[in-house]
Design a binder for these strands. Sequence first.
DNA 1: ATCGCCTTTTGGTATGGACAAGTCACACTG
DNA 2: CAGTGTGACTTGTCCATACCAAAAGGCGAT
Lengths: 252, 252
Amino acid sequence: MQDLVQTNGAEGPLYSRIHRELGERIMRGSYPVGALMPTEVELAAEFGTSRSTIREALRSLTEDGYVERRQGMGTRVIASEISAGYHQSLNSIHELQQIALDTYMVILSDEQVALDDALAPRVGGKTDEVWAKVSGIRWTAPGGRPICFIESYVPGRLAHVVPEFHGLQGSFFDLLERRSGEAVREVQQDIRAVQMPVRISRMLGLPDGAQSLQLLRRYITDRGTLIASCNWHPADQMTYRMQIRRGRGPQD
Amino acid sequence: MQDLVQTNGAEGPLYSRIHRELGERIMRGSYPVGALMPTEVELAAEFGTSRSTIREALRSLTEDGYVERRQGMGTRVIASEISAGYHQSLNSIHELQQIALDTYMVILSDEQVALDDALAPRVGGKTDEVWAKVSGIRWTAPGGRPICFIESYVPGRLAHVVPEFHGLQGSFFDLLERRSGEAVREVQQDIRAVQMPVRISRMLGLPDGAQSLQLLRRYITDRGTLIASCNWHPADQMTYRMQIRRGRGPQD
DNA sequence: ATCGCCTTTTGGTATGGACAAGTCACACTG
DNA sequence: CAGTGTGACTTGTCCATACCAAAAGGCGAT
Protein backbone atom coordinates (compact mmCIF):
# COMPACT_ATOMS: atom_id res chain seq x y z
CA MET A 1 0.00 0.00 0.00
CA GLN A 2 2.59 2.51 -1.07
CA ASP A 3 -0.28 4.48 -2.57
CA LEU A 4 -1.68 5.09 0.84
CA VAL A 5 1.54 6.56 2.00
CA GLN A 6 1.64 8.89 -0.98
CA THR A 7 -1.93 10.08 -1.28
CA ASN A 8 -2.79 10.50 2.36
CA GLY A 9 -0.79 12.32 4.93
CA ALA A 10 2.25 10.18 5.35
CA GLU A 11 2.42 11.19 9.00
CA GLY A 12 1.61 8.96 11.87
CA PRO A 13 1.58 5.27 12.49
CA LEU A 14 0.37 2.84 9.88
CA TYR A 15 -2.91 1.94 11.60
CA SER A 16 -3.71 5.63 11.84
CA ARG A 17 -3.17 6.18 8.10
CA ILE A 18 -5.35 3.17 7.34
CA HIS A 19 -7.95 4.58 9.72
CA ARG A 20 -7.98 7.84 7.75
CA GLU A 21 -8.19 6.02 4.43
CA LEU A 22 -11.11 3.85 5.52
CA GLY A 23 -12.88 6.84 7.05
CA GLU A 24 -12.62 8.65 3.74
CA ARG A 25 -14.00 5.69 1.84
CA ILE A 26 -17.01 5.68 4.14
CA MET A 27 -17.54 9.40 3.73
CA ARG A 28 -17.20 9.10 -0.04
CA GLY A 29 -19.74 6.30 -0.07
CA SER A 30 -17.38 3.63 -1.35
CA TYR A 31 -18.59 1.64 1.63
CA PRO A 32 -22.28 2.59 1.81
CA VAL A 33 -24.13 2.95 5.07
CA GLY A 34 -25.76 -0.33 5.98
CA ALA A 35 -23.32 -2.47 4.05
CA LEU A 36 -20.62 -4.72 5.39
CA MET A 37 -17.01 -3.65 5.10
CA PRO A 38 -14.43 -6.06 3.73
CA THR A 39 -13.32 -8.56 6.35
CA GLU A 40 -10.23 -8.03 8.45
CA VAL A 41 -8.30 -10.58 6.43
CA GLU A 42 -9.27 -8.94 3.14
CA LEU A 43 -8.25 -5.51 4.38
CA ALA A 44 -4.98 -6.88 5.71
CA ALA A 45 -4.29 -8.32 2.24
CA GLU A 46 -5.24 -5.10 0.47
CA PHE A 47 -3.03 -2.90 2.64
CA GLY A 48 -0.29 -5.49 2.81
CA THR A 49 -0.27 -5.45 6.56
CA SER A 50 -1.12 -7.69 9.46
CA ARG A 51 -4.54 -8.31 10.90
CA SER A 52 -3.55 -6.60 14.16
CA THR A 53 -2.90 -3.34 12.39
CA ILE A 54 -6.24 -3.54 10.60
CA ARG A 55 -7.98 -4.25 13.88
CA GLU A 56 -6.41 -1.18 15.41
CA ALA A 57 -7.70 0.94 12.53
CA LEU A 58 -11.16 -0.60 12.78
CA ARG A 59 -11.17 0.02 16.51
CA SER A 60 -10.67 3.71 15.84
CA LEU A 61 -13.52 3.69 13.34
CA THR A 62 -15.72 2.07 15.97
CA GLU A 63 -14.85 4.76 18.49
CA ASP A 64 -15.68 7.39 15.89
CA GLY A 65 -19.10 5.84 15.48
CA TYR A 66 -18.62 4.99 11.81
CA VAL A 67 -18.94 1.23 12.11
CA GLU A 68 -20.33 -1.45 14.31
CA ARG A 69 -18.69 -4.85 14.65
CA ARG A 70 -20.12 -8.16 15.64
CA GLN A 71 -18.42 -11.49 15.99
CA GLY A 72 -19.33 -13.88 13.24
CA MET A 73 -21.13 -11.26 11.23
CA GLY A 74 -18.65 -8.66 10.18
CA THR A 75 -18.11 -4.92 10.29
CA ARG A 76 -21.13 -2.86 9.31
CA VAL A 77 -21.06 0.80 8.28
CA ILE A 78 -23.59 2.67 10.41
CA ALA A 79 -22.81 6.30 9.65
CA SER A 80 -21.16 8.24 6.89
CA GLU A 81 -20.67 11.54 8.60
CA ILE A 82 -19.26 12.13 12.00
CA SER A 83 -21.55 15.05 12.69
CA ALA A 84 -23.92 12.28 13.64
CA GLY A 85 -21.83 12.03 16.77
CA TYR A 86 -22.85 15.59 17.63
CA HIS A 87 -26.38 14.80 17.67
CA GLN A 88 -27.38 13.30 20.87
CA SER A 89 -29.17 14.74 23.69
CA LEU A 90 -29.66 18.42 23.72
CA ASN A 91 -28.98 18.14 20.03
CA SER A 92 -25.76 19.91 19.91
CA ILE A 93 -24.45 22.98 21.48
CA HIS A 94 -26.87 25.03 19.45
CA GLU A 95 -29.78 23.91 21.54
CA LEU A 96 -28.09 25.15 24.66
CA GLN A 97 -28.00 28.60 23.11
CA GLN A 98 -31.67 28.33 22.24
CA ILE A 99 -32.68 27.66 25.84
CA ALA A 100 -30.92 30.82 26.88
CA LEU A 101 -32.68 32.85 24.19
CA ASP A 102 -36.13 31.51 25.02
CA THR A 103 -35.90 32.25 28.72
CA TYR A 104 -34.91 35.06 30.96
CA MET A 105 -32.16 35.31 33.55
CA VAL A 106 -31.98 37.59 36.56
CA ILE A 107 -28.56 38.01 38.16
CA LEU A 108 -28.68 38.16 41.94
CA SER A 109 -25.02 38.42 42.83
CA ASP A 110 -21.60 38.66 41.24
CA GLU A 111 -18.44 38.16 43.28
CA GLN A 112 -14.88 36.82 43.30
CA VAL A 113 -14.22 33.56 45.14
CA ALA A 114 -11.23 31.31 45.75
CA LEU A 115 -11.86 27.69 44.80
CA ASP A 116 -11.85 25.20 47.63
CA ASP A 117 -11.01 21.52 47.27
CA ALA A 118 -14.60 20.52 46.58
CA LEU A 119 -15.32 23.17 44.00
CA ALA A 120 -12.07 23.05 42.05
CA PRO A 121 -12.56 19.68 40.32
CA ARG A 122 -16.21 20.42 39.66
CA VAL A 123 -15.54 23.58 37.70
CA GLY A 124 -12.27 22.35 36.24
CA GLY A 125 -9.85 24.64 38.05
CA LYS A 126 -7.21 24.29 40.74
CA THR A 127 -7.57 24.83 44.48
CA ASP A 128 -7.06 28.46 45.60
CA GLU A 129 -7.46 29.90 42.11
CA VAL A 130 -9.70 32.96 42.07
CA TRP A 131 -12.77 32.71 39.83
CA ALA A 132 -15.77 34.95 39.29
CA LYS A 133 -19.04 33.57 40.64
CA VAL A 134 -22.35 34.73 39.22
CA SER A 135 -25.64 33.63 40.80
CA GLY A 136 -29.11 34.08 39.44
CA ILE A 137 -32.50 32.65 38.63
CA ARG A 138 -33.77 31.71 35.20
CA TRP A 139 -37.42 32.51 34.46
CA THR A 140 -39.80 31.49 31.72
CA ALA A 141 -40.36 35.18 31.09
CA PRO A 142 -40.12 38.46 33.05
CA GLY A 143 -42.68 37.99 35.83
CA GLY A 144 -43.20 34.35 34.87
CA ARG A 145 -42.34 31.10 36.67
CA PRO A 146 -38.85 30.36 38.00
CA ILE A 147 -37.17 27.52 36.12
CA CYS A 148 -33.99 27.03 38.05
CA PHE A 149 -31.35 28.56 40.23
CA ILE A 150 -27.95 29.02 38.64
CA GLU A 151 -24.42 29.46 39.89
CA SER A 152 -21.83 30.10 37.19
CA TYR A 153 -18.08 30.16 37.59
CA VAL A 154 -15.75 31.98 35.20
CA PRO A 155 -11.95 31.62 35.38
CA GLY A 156 -9.88 34.67 36.29
CA ARG A 157 -8.51 35.18 32.77
CA LEU A 158 -12.06 35.94 31.59
CA ALA A 159 -13.40 37.76 34.64
CA HIS A 160 -13.29 41.07 32.77
CA VAL A 161 -16.18 39.90 30.59
CA VAL A 162 -18.49 39.18 33.54
CA PRO A 163 -19.87 42.76 33.91
CA GLU A 164 -21.39 42.33 30.45
CA PHE A 165 -23.53 39.46 31.75
CA HIS A 166 -25.99 41.93 33.30
CA GLY A 167 -28.91 42.42 31.00
CA LEU A 168 -27.49 40.01 28.44
CA GLN A 169 -29.87 38.34 26.04
CA GLY A 170 -28.47 34.99 25.10
CA SER A 171 -26.06 32.61 26.70
CA PHE A 172 -23.01 33.47 28.75
CA PHE A 173 -20.78 30.99 27.00
CA ASP A 174 -21.70 32.48 23.64
CA LEU A 175 -20.52 35.89 24.79
CA LEU A 176 -17.37 34.45 26.32
CA GLU A 177 -16.56 32.61 23.11
CA ARG A 178 -16.76 35.84 21.13
CA ARG A 179 -14.84 37.99 23.61
CA SER A 180 -12.08 35.48 24.23
CA GLY A 181 -11.73 34.03 20.76
CA GLU A 182 -11.63 30.55 22.29
CA ALA A 183 -13.92 27.98 20.67
CA VAL A 184 -15.89 25.55 22.79
CA ARG A 185 -14.65 22.10 21.90
CA GLU A 186 -17.07 20.15 24.05
CA VAL A 187 -19.56 20.51 26.83
CA GLN A 188 -19.38 18.12 29.73
CA GLN A 189 -22.54 17.67 31.71
CA ASP A 190 -23.14 15.91 35.02
CA ILE A 191 -26.68 15.18 36.15
CA ARG A 192 -27.48 14.32 39.75
CA ALA A 193 -30.42 14.17 42.13
CA VAL A 194 -29.58 16.26 45.19
CA GLN A 195 -31.37 17.97 48.00
CA MET A 196 -31.60 21.65 47.28
CA PRO A 197 -29.55 23.85 49.61
CA VAL A 198 -31.85 25.82 51.88
CA ARG A 199 -30.71 29.21 50.61
CA ILE A 200 -31.70 28.14 47.12
CA SER A 201 -35.03 26.51 47.90
CA ARG A 202 -36.08 29.70 49.73
CA MET A 203 -35.15 31.88 46.81
CA LEU A 204 -37.27 29.73 44.54
CA GLY A 205 -40.17 29.74 47.01
CA LEU A 206 -39.91 26.03 47.80
CA PRO A 207 -40.00 24.27 51.18
CA ASP A 208 -36.74 23.46 52.95
CA GLY A 209 -35.32 20.12 51.90
CA ALA A 210 -36.93 20.15 48.47
CA GLN A 211 -35.40 17.71 46.00
CA SER A 212 -33.78 18.94 42.86
CA LEU A 213 -32.29 17.75 39.61
CA GLN A 214 -28.88 19.33 39.41
CA LEU A 215 -27.15 19.92 36.09
CA LEU A 216 -23.50 20.86 36.11
CA ARG A 217 -22.15 21.94 32.74
CA ARG A 218 -18.58 22.73 31.84
CA TYR A 219 -17.83 24.43 28.55
CA ILE A 220 -14.36 23.36 27.56
CA THR A 221 -11.96 25.05 25.16
CA ASP A 222 -8.34 24.34 24.34
CA ARG A 223 -7.34 26.66 27.18
CA GLY A 224 -9.49 24.89 29.75
CA THR A 225 -12.88 25.72 31.19
CA LEU A 226 -14.60 28.72 29.59
CA ILE A 227 -17.44 28.71 32.08
CA ALA A 228 -18.93 26.19 34.50
CA SER A 229 -22.57 26.44 35.34
CA CYS A 230 -24.54 24.63 38.01
CA ASN A 231 -28.35 24.61 37.68
CA TRP A 232 -30.79 23.46 40.36
CA HIS A 233 -34.20 22.51 38.97
CA PRO A 234 -37.12 21.64 41.27
CA ALA A 235 -37.42 17.86 40.96
CA ASP A 236 -41.12 17.77 40.23
CA GLN A 237 -40.86 20.32 37.44
CA MET A 238 -37.98 18.89 35.52
CA THR A 239 -37.47 15.92 33.29
CA TYR A 240 -34.32 15.87 31.24
CA ARG A 241 -35.06 14.28 27.91
CA MET A 242 -32.45 13.26 25.40
CA GLN A 243 -32.13 11.12 22.33
CA ILE A 244 -29.33 8.95 21.16
CA ARG A 245 -29.57 8.23 17.49
CA ARG A 246 -27.90 5.59 15.48
CA GLY A 247 -26.51 7.16 12.37
CA ARG A 248 -28.30 5.87 9.30
CA GLY A 249 -27.28 8.04 6.41
CA PRO A 250 -28.63 11.05 4.57
CA GLN A 251 -32.29 10.07 4.71
CA ASP A 252 -32.31 10.76 8.40
CA MET B 1 -2.37 -16.53 38.61
CA GLN B 2 -4.73 -19.31 39.47
CA ASP B 3 -5.76 -17.12 42.40
CA LEU B 4 -7.32 -14.61 40.10
CA VAL B 5 -9.41 -17.22 38.45
CA GLN B 6 -10.65 -18.45 41.80
CA THR B 7 -11.28 -15.27 43.73
CA ASN B 8 -12.73 -13.15 41.00
CA GLY B 9 -15.53 -14.07 38.73
CA ALA B 10 -14.07 -16.76 36.56
CA GLU B 11 -16.22 -15.62 33.67
CA GLY B 12 -15.04 -13.72 30.71
CA PRO B 13 -11.80 -13.42 28.83
CA LEU B 14 -8.50 -13.23 30.64
CA TYR B 15 -7.85 -9.55 29.93
CA SER B 16 -11.27 -8.77 31.33
CA ARG B 17 -10.58 -10.60 34.57
CA ILE B 18 -7.27 -8.81 34.90
CA HIS B 19 -9.09 -5.56 34.21
CA ARG B 20 -11.44 -6.25 37.12
CA GLU B 21 -8.61 -7.24 39.42
CA LEU B 22 -6.59 -4.09 38.68
CA GLY B 23 -9.71 -1.94 39.03
CA GLU B 24 -10.28 -3.39 42.49
CA ARG B 25 -6.70 -2.72 43.50
CA ILE B 26 -7.15 0.89 42.51
CA MET B 27 -10.41 1.17 44.44
CA ARG B 28 -8.84 -0.46 47.47
CA GLY B 29 -5.95 1.99 47.30
CA SER B 30 -3.29 -0.61 46.63
CA TYR B 31 -2.35 1.60 43.73
CA PRO B 32 -2.90 5.11 45.14
CA VAL B 33 -4.16 7.99 43.03
CA GLY B 34 -1.24 9.90 41.59
CA ALA B 35 1.15 6.97 41.70
CA LEU B 36 2.49 4.94 38.81
CA MET B 37 1.17 1.44 38.27
CA PRO B 38 3.62 -1.42 37.75
CA THR B 39 4.93 -1.51 34.20
CA GLU B 40 3.37 -3.67 31.53
CA VAL B 41 6.22 -6.13 31.73
CA GLU B 42 5.94 -6.42 35.50
CA LEU B 43 2.20 -7.02 35.33
CA ALA B 44 2.65 -9.56 32.58
CA ALA B 45 5.09 -11.41 34.82
CA GLU B 46 2.80 -11.21 37.83
CA PHE B 47 -0.23 -12.53 36.00
CA GLY B 48 1.78 -14.99 34.01
CA THR B 49 0.47 -13.68 30.73
CA SER B 50 1.71 -11.81 27.69
CA ARG B 51 2.19 -8.09 27.42
CA SER B 52 -0.59 -7.84 24.82
CA THR B 53 -3.14 -9.16 27.28
CA ILE B 54 -2.01 -6.70 29.94
CA ARG B 55 -2.24 -3.90 27.41
CA GLU B 56 -5.83 -4.87 26.65
CA ALA B 57 -6.68 -4.74 30.36
CA LEU B 58 -4.95 -1.39 30.75
CA ARG B 59 -6.82 -0.07 27.74
CA SER B 60 -10.08 -0.87 29.50
CA LEU B 61 -8.89 0.89 32.65
CA THR B 62 -8.07 3.92 30.52
CA GLU B 63 -11.56 3.91 29.03
CA ASP B 64 -13.00 3.70 32.53
CA GLY B 65 -11.05 6.81 33.44
CA TYR B 66 -9.01 5.11 36.13
CA VAL B 67 -5.59 5.60 34.60
CA GLU B 68 -3.69 7.73 32.15
CA ARG B 69 -0.86 6.36 30.06
CA ARG B 70 2.07 8.04 28.43
CA GLN B 71 4.80 6.65 26.31
CA GLY B 72 8.10 6.56 28.08
CA MET B 73 6.62 7.50 31.43
CA GLY B 74 4.25 4.78 32.52
CA THR B 75 0.67 4.30 33.64
CA ARG B 76 -0.57 6.74 36.26
CA VAL B 77 -3.63 6.27 38.46
CA ILE B 78 -5.85 9.33 38.15
CA ALA B 79 -9.05 8.23 39.91
CA SER B 80 -10.08 5.62 42.43
CA GLU B 81 -13.83 5.84 42.63
CA ILE B 82 -15.21 5.78 39.14
CA SER B 83 -17.01 2.49 39.14
CA ALA B 84 -19.35 1.59 36.35
CA GLY B 85 -22.34 2.38 38.50
CA TYR B 86 -21.30 5.72 39.82
CA HIS B 87 -20.64 7.57 36.65
CA GLN B 88 -22.43 6.65 33.55
CA SER B 89 -21.28 8.20 30.39
CA LEU B 90 -23.47 7.82 27.46
CA ASN B 91 -22.53 9.15 24.08
CA SER B 92 -23.49 6.30 21.85
CA ILE B 93 -25.55 3.18 21.68
CA HIS B 94 -22.35 1.23 21.88
CA GLU B 95 -21.71 2.51 25.39
CA LEU B 96 -25.07 1.20 26.51
CA GLN B 97 -23.98 -2.27 25.47
CA GLN B 98 -20.71 -1.85 27.30
CA ILE B 99 -22.38 -1.01 30.60
CA ALA B 100 -24.41 -4.18 30.37
CA LEU B 101 -21.32 -6.24 29.64
CA ASP B 102 -19.32 -4.79 32.52
CA THR B 103 -22.02 -5.35 35.12
CA TYR B 104 -24.26 -8.11 36.25
CA MET B 105 -28.04 -8.36 36.38
CA VAL B 106 -30.18 -10.53 38.63
CA ILE B 107 -33.78 -11.03 37.56
CA LEU B 108 -36.23 -11.03 40.45
CA SER B 109 -39.54 -11.39 38.68
CA ASP B 110 -40.98 -11.87 35.24
CA GLU B 111 -44.70 -11.46 34.57
CA GLN B 112 -47.32 -10.32 32.09
CA VAL B 113 -49.08 -7.03 32.79
CA ALA B 114 -51.73 -4.92 31.10
CA LEU B 115 -50.67 -1.32 30.60
CA ASP B 116 -52.61 1.30 32.54
CA ASP B 117 -53.04 4.91 31.51
CA ALA B 118 -49.96 6.04 33.38
CA LEU B 119 -47.65 3.35 32.09
CA ALA B 120 -48.71 3.23 28.45
CA PRO B 121 -47.23 6.55 27.32
CA ARG B 122 -44.10 6.00 29.35
CA VAL B 123 -43.21 2.74 27.64
CA GLY B 124 -44.62 3.72 24.26
CA GLY B 125 -47.61 1.37 24.14
CA LYS B 126 -51.37 1.67 24.29
CA THR B 127 -53.63 1.29 27.31
CA ASP B 128 -54.73 -2.31 28.02
CA GLU B 129 -52.07 -3.86 25.81
CA VAL B 130 -50.35 -6.80 27.47
CA TRP B 131 -46.59 -6.46 27.89
CA ALA B 132 -43.98 -8.57 29.64
CA LYS B 133 -42.53 -6.94 32.74
CA VAL B 134 -39.10 -8.00 34.00
CA SER B 135 -37.75 -6.68 37.30
CA GLY B 136 -34.26 -7.04 38.65
CA ILE B 137 -31.22 -5.50 40.22
CA ARG B 138 -28.00 -4.64 38.46
CA TRP B 139 -24.77 -5.32 40.36
CA THR B 140 -21.16 -4.31 39.86
CA ALA B 141 -20.29 -8.00 39.95
CA PRO B 142 -21.73 -11.20 41.41
CA GLY B 143 -21.63 -10.53 45.14
CA GLY B 144 -20.66 -6.89 44.57
CA ARG B 145 -22.57 -3.67 45.18
CA PRO B 146 -26.08 -3.03 43.85
CA ILE B 147 -26.12 -0.34 41.19
CA CYS B 148 -29.78 0.12 40.47
CA PHE B 149 -33.22 -1.42 40.41
CA ILE B 150 -34.66 -2.06 36.98
CA GLU B 151 -38.11 -2.59 35.56
CA SER B 152 -38.16 -3.47 31.87
CA TYR B 153 -41.21 -3.71 29.64
CA VAL B 154 -41.26 -5.74 26.44
CA PRO B 155 -44.16 -5.58 23.97
CA GLY B 156 -46.26 -8.70 23.43
CA ARG B 157 -44.87 -9.42 19.95
CA LEU B 158 -41.45 -10.04 21.54
CA ALA B 159 -42.52 -11.68 24.79
CA HIS B 160 -41.27 -15.04 23.53
CA VAL B 161 -37.69 -13.80 23.82
CA VAL B 162 -38.01 -12.86 27.49
CA PRO B 163 -37.18 -16.32 28.89
CA GLU B 164 -33.74 -15.94 27.35
CA PHE B 165 -33.09 -12.94 29.60
CA HIS B 166 -32.31 -15.21 32.53
CA GLY B 167 -28.58 -15.64 32.82
CA LEU B 168 -27.93 -13.41 29.82
CA GLN B 169 -24.56 -11.73 29.58
CA GLY B 170 -24.99 -8.51 27.74
CA SER B 171 -27.84 -6.14 27.16
CA PHE B 172 -31.47 -7.08 26.67
CA PHE B 173 -31.95 -4.79 23.71
CA ASP B 174 -28.99 -6.36 21.98
CA LEU B 175 -30.61 -9.78 22.24
CA LEU B 176 -34.00 -8.46 21.17
CA GLU B 177 -32.43 -6.77 18.16
CA ARG B 178 -30.94 -10.04 17.01
CA ARG B 179 -33.97 -12.21 17.68
CA SER B 180 -36.45 -9.83 16.09
CA GLY B 181 -34.36 -8.52 13.25
CA GLU B 182 -35.54 -5.01 14.11
CA ALA B 183 -32.78 -2.41 14.33
CA VAL B 184 -32.83 0.19 17.06
CA ARG B 185 -33.17 3.54 15.35
CA GLU B 186 -32.83 5.67 18.45
CA VAL B 187 -32.92 5.55 22.19
CA GLN B 188 -35.03 8.08 24.03
CA GLN B 189 -34.04 8.75 27.59
CA ASP B 190 -35.79 10.70 30.33
CA ILE B 191 -33.92 11.61 33.49
CA ARG B 192 -35.74 12.69 36.63
CA ALA B 193 -35.14 13.06 40.35
CA VAL B 194 -37.85 11.11 42.17
CA GLN B 195 -38.45 9.58 45.52
CA MET B 196 -37.80 5.85 45.35
CA PRO B 197 -40.91 3.69 45.80
CA VAL B 198 -40.76 1.91 49.14
CA ARG B 199 -40.76 -1.56 47.63
CA ILE B 200 -37.65 -0.65 45.66
CA SER B 201 -35.71 1.13 48.38
CA ARG B 202 -36.19 -1.92 50.61
CA MET B 203 -34.88 -4.27 47.98
CA LEU B 204 -31.76 -2.15 47.62
CA GLY B 205 -31.32 -1.94 51.39
CA LEU B 206 -32.04 1.79 51.57
CA PRO B 207 -34.26 3.69 54.02
CA ASP B 208 -37.85 4.46 53.06
CA GLY B 209 -38.19 7.69 51.16
CA ALA B 210 -34.68 7.56 49.73
CA GLN B 211 -34.12 9.84 46.77
CA SER B 212 -33.23 8.42 43.41
CA LEU B 213 -32.12 9.39 39.97
CA GLN B 214 -34.54 7.70 37.63
CA LEU B 215 -33.59 6.90 34.05
CA LEU B 216 -36.32 5.81 31.67
CA ARG B 217 -35.02 4.53 28.35
CA ARG B 218 -37.02 3.53 25.32
CA TYR B 219 -35.32 1.67 22.50
CA ILE B 220 -37.19 2.51 19.36
CA THR B 221 -37.30 0.60 16.08
CA ASP B 222 -39.40 1.07 12.97
CA ARG B 223 -42.06 -1.16 14.52
CA GLY B 224 -42.25 0.81 17.75
CA THR B 225 -40.73 0.22 21.16
CA LEU B 226 -38.37 -2.75 21.34
CA ILE B 227 -37.97 -2.50 25.09
CA ALA B 228 -38.54 0.19 27.70
CA SER B 229 -36.41 0.16 30.80
CA CYS B 230 -36.79 2.17 33.98
CA ASN B 231 -33.76 2.34 36.28
CA TRP B 232 -33.76 3.70 39.82
CA HIS B 233 -30.29 4.67 41.05
CA PRO B 234 -29.65 5.72 44.65
CA ALA B 235 -29.24 9.49 44.41
CA ASP B 236 -26.02 9.68 46.37
CA GLN B 237 -24.35 6.99 44.30
CA MET B 238 -25.14 8.19 40.84
CA THR B 239 -23.93 10.95 38.65
CA TYR B 240 -24.95 10.81 35.04
CA ARG B 241 -22.13 12.18 32.94
CA MET B 242 -22.35 13.00 29.27
CA GLN B 243 -20.48 15.00 26.69
CA ILE B 244 -21.63 17.06 23.80
CA ARG B 245 -18.86 17.35 21.28
CA ARG B 246 -18.17 19.32 18.21
CA GLY B 247 -17.72 16.72 15.55
CA ARG B 248 -14.36 15.51 14.38
CA GLY B 249 -13.43 13.17 11.58
CA PRO B 250 -10.91 10.35 11.53
CA GLN B 251 -8.22 12.84 10.56
CA ASP B 252 -8.21 13.81 14.21
C1' DA C 1 -42.02 -26.01 5.86
C1' DT C 2 -39.46 -26.61 10.23
C1' DC C 3 -36.14 -28.26 13.15
C1' DG C 4 -31.53 -29.70 14.32
C1' DC C 5 -26.74 -30.54 12.98
C1' DC C 6 -22.53 -29.49 10.63
C1' DT C 7 -19.35 -26.50 8.15
C1' DT C 8 -17.71 -22.04 6.87
C1' DT C 9 -16.99 -17.39 7.72
C1' DT C 10 -15.83 -13.75 10.77
C1' DG C 11 -14.47 -11.16 14.57
C1' DG C 12 -12.45 -12.02 19.56
C1' DT C 13 -8.67 -13.49 22.49
C1' DA C 14 -3.98 -14.77 23.41
C1' DT C 15 1.08 -15.61 22.67
C1' DG C 16 5.75 -13.92 21.90
C1' DG C 17 8.90 -11.41 19.53
C1' DA C 18 10.96 -7.18 17.49
C1' DC C 19 11.88 -2.41 17.01
C1' DA C 20 10.41 2.72 17.44
C1' DA C 21 9.80 6.60 20.15
C1' DG C 22 9.11 9.18 24.23
C1' DT C 23 10.94 10.25 29.20
C1' DC C 24 14.04 10.57 32.74
C1' DA C 25 18.26 10.43 35.46
C1' DC C 26 22.95 11.05 35.32
C1' DA C 27 27.45 11.77 33.88
C1' DC C 28 30.00 14.61 30.93
C1' DT C 29 31.41 18.86 28.59
C1' DG C 30 31.82 23.67 27.49
C1' DC D 1 26.58 26.68 36.03
C1' DA D 2 24.20 25.51 31.74
C1' DG D 3 23.77 22.61 28.20
C1' DT D 4 24.48 18.11 25.97
C1' DG D 5 24.62 13.58 25.18
C1' DT D 6 23.98 8.82 26.59
C1' DG D 7 21.80 4.85 28.27
C1' DA D 8 18.14 2.58 30.71
C1' DC D 9 13.44 2.17 30.98
C1' DT D 10 8.57 2.37 29.46
C1' DT D 11 4.80 2.61 26.41
C1' DG D 12 3.63 2.58 21.28
C1' DT D 13 3.53 0.14 16.95
C1' DC D 14 3.81 -3.90 14.08
C1' DC D 15 4.30 -8.60 12.96
C1' DA D 16 3.13 -13.89 12.47
C1' DT D 17 0.53 -17.41 14.30
C1' DA D 18 -2.88 -20.05 16.72
C1' DC D 19 -7.13 -21.12 18.60
C1' DC D 20 -11.90 -19.72 20.40
C1' DA D 21 -16.79 -18.33 19.90
C1' DA D 22 -20.59 -16.36 17.57
C1' DA D 23 -23.28 -16.06 13.40
C1' DA D 24 -24.74 -17.57 8.93
C1' DG D 25 -25.69 -20.81 5.56
C1' DG D 26 -26.28 -25.42 3.74
C1' DC D 27 -28.19 -29.93 4.27
C1' DG D 28 -30.79 -33.65 5.59
C1' DA D 29 -34.33 -35.67 8.56
C1' DT D 30 -38.72 -35.18 10.31
